[in-house]
């Protein structure tokens, strides 16, 4: 038996929004530690690695580890039937071919449940090596979304150049070119508005804006995003999943392979 109850159900709705455009289907691997999902997009260029920690749920029961194969578009549609302030419970019997979602209104005066068929997925898992990145850039998630959106006007790719002075995002195309420079924040009152660069070595890498724009769908989960880069390795973009009190409930991490010169 697997059962997980999340009082702040909107977090699960936001998690689904953050992956449903990038992935068609994936397995939720449920264990005593929590619910994990790892999957690549169909072109094997980007990977999502997501974790919802068991202690982030108000109730969590997982008698034995199970893998729930899910059509993510279907799950996303069902979760749209939950109100933003609903409490969401996920339930699956061992060896079941279906998963149940229950939505309770805060006053408990409306309870709905939806059963969804599970899929048999033959998923391949990639080993992601522990990496000490040469640059880690933290910035407001809204700022990163805006940069990716704005530079998409100019081209398909962005060059991210991180030095001790700050970060520069550049794009070019037929109509011209554009650059956005972000300096490290000297003093900010609010931590979530800061730009912080932790750099051991300067790094310049090129990435597809199409994928970065998919990643920014996770911005509603977190006020800050971190970009971790080293030369010649995939970029890691991380949004932490925090509840209203700011306690960590997990993360959504995206990995994106770089583009190289022909």
């Amino acid at each position: 038996m697997f059962e997980a109850r999340l009082v702040e159900g909107s977090l699960l709705k936001k998690v689904m929004e953050s992956i449903k455009d990038l992935l068609n289907e994936a397995s939720w691997d449920c264990s005593g530690n929590g619910m994990c999902l790892q999957a690549m997009d169909s072109s094997h260029v980007a990977l999502v690695s997501l974790m919802l920690k068991s202690d982030g749920f108000e109730n969590y029961r997982c008698d034995r580890s199970i893998s729930l194969g899910i059509n993510l578009a279907s799950m996303s549609k069902i979760l749209k039937c939950a109100s933003n302030d609903d409490i969401i419970t996920i339930r699956a019997e061992d060896d079941a071919d279906a998963i149940t979602f229950m939505f309770e209104s805060p006053k408990q005066d409306r309870v709905s449940d939806y059963e969804m068929k599970l899929m048999n997925l033959d998923t391949e898992h990639l080993g992601i090596p522990d990496t000490e990145y040469a640059c880690v850039i933290k910035m407001p998630s809204g700022e990163f979304s805006r940069i990716c959106r704005d530079l998409s006007v100019l081209g398909d790719s962005v060059i991210i150049c991180c030095t001790k002075d700050g970060v520069r995002f550049s794009a070019k195309g037929d109509l011209g070119n554009g650059n956005i420079k972000l300096a490290q924040s000297a003093n900010v009152d609010k931590e979530e508005e800061a730009v912080v660069v932790d750099m051991r070595e300067a790094v310049t890498l090129t990435f597809s804006l199409r994928y970065l724009n998919f990643f920014t769908k996770a911005a509603p989960l977190s006020s800050q995003v971190s970009l971790s880069m080293s030369e010649d390795v995939p970029l890691m973009v991380e949004y932490k999943i925090n509840d209203k009190e700011g306690d960590s409930k997990g993360y959504v991490r995206y990995y994106l392979a770089p583009k190289i010169e022909d």
Binding site: L47, H125, L126, A257, E261
Partner: peptide, 14 residues
Amino acid sequence: NNIQLKLSYFFGNT
């Protein structure tokens, strides 16, 4: 022009 690399170039199967 740039070439998009695949993730399998960096990460191995487990």
